[in-house]
Amino acid sequence: MGGEGKVFTLAEVSVHNTPQDCWLIINEKVYDVTKFLEDHPGGDEVLLSATGKDATDDFEDVGHSDSARDMMKEYYVGEIDASTIPKKTKYIPPKQPHYNQDKTSEFIIKLLQFLVPLAILGLAVGIRFYTKTT
């Protein structure tokens, strides 16, 4: 193609997002896959949904064959200016208090420590009352 070696920004590549003009960014390289849309085994929607962003993860997650990777050479149009692609941030889950599974058993023990002596006291009073009345 006529653009080999050219460096594009993300904004420049992002405008190529239609079935008539579809460009992808994979491994910091830019590919014009417009002619391949109809032949793509996953359908054109897969390729169109990957426009306007770095599609490297999408491409790698599928596990493309060596022949598919070789085929990419004919669609190559240039490189992407990596400074125009937003950096991926690693997801860090919010801090949460440690969950103590033993809280339930601690509650049951404290409840029993209160109820068992109370039951014993009640039983003692009941026996004493019963023996006095008979």
Rank of each mutant, 00 (worst) to 15 (best):
G2V: 15
G2M: 14
G3L: 15
G3M: 10
K6D: 09
V7T: 13
V7R: 04
F8P: 01
T9M: 13
L10F: 05
A11V: 07
E12Q: 14
T18Q: 12
P19A: 10
D21W: 09
D21M: 14
D21R: 08
W23P: 09
W23H: 04
L24H: 02
I25M: 08
N27G: 06
N27A: 10
E28Y: 14
V30M: 10
D32P: 08
K35P: 08
K35N: 13
F36G: 00
L37T: 06
L37A: 05
E38A: 13
E38L: 14
D39W: 06
G42W: 01
G42S: 06
D44P: 06
E45P: 00
V46C: 11
V46F: 03
L47P: 03
L47V: 06
L47F: 04
L48P: 02
S49G: 09
A50V: 05
D54Y: 05
D54L: 07
A55Q: 01
D57G: 04
D58A: 13
E60T: 10
V62C: 05
S65M: 11
S65Q: 13
D70G: 02
M71R: 06
M71V: 11
M71Y: 03
M72W: 01
Y75W: 14
Y76K: 10
V77A: 03
G78R: 03
G78Y: 03
G78T: 01
S83H: 07
I85A: 06
K87E: 15
T89E: 15
Y91V: 12
Y91L: 15
Y91A: 10
I92D: 10
P94F: 05
P94L: 11
P94H: 02
P94E: 13
K95P: 09
H98Y: 08
Y99R: 05
S105I: 15
F107S: 01
F107N: 01
K110W: 11
K110Y: 14
L111W: 07
Q113W: 12
L115R: 01
V116Y: 05
A119H: 00
V125K: 08
G126C: 04
R128D: 05
F129R: 01
T131L: 15
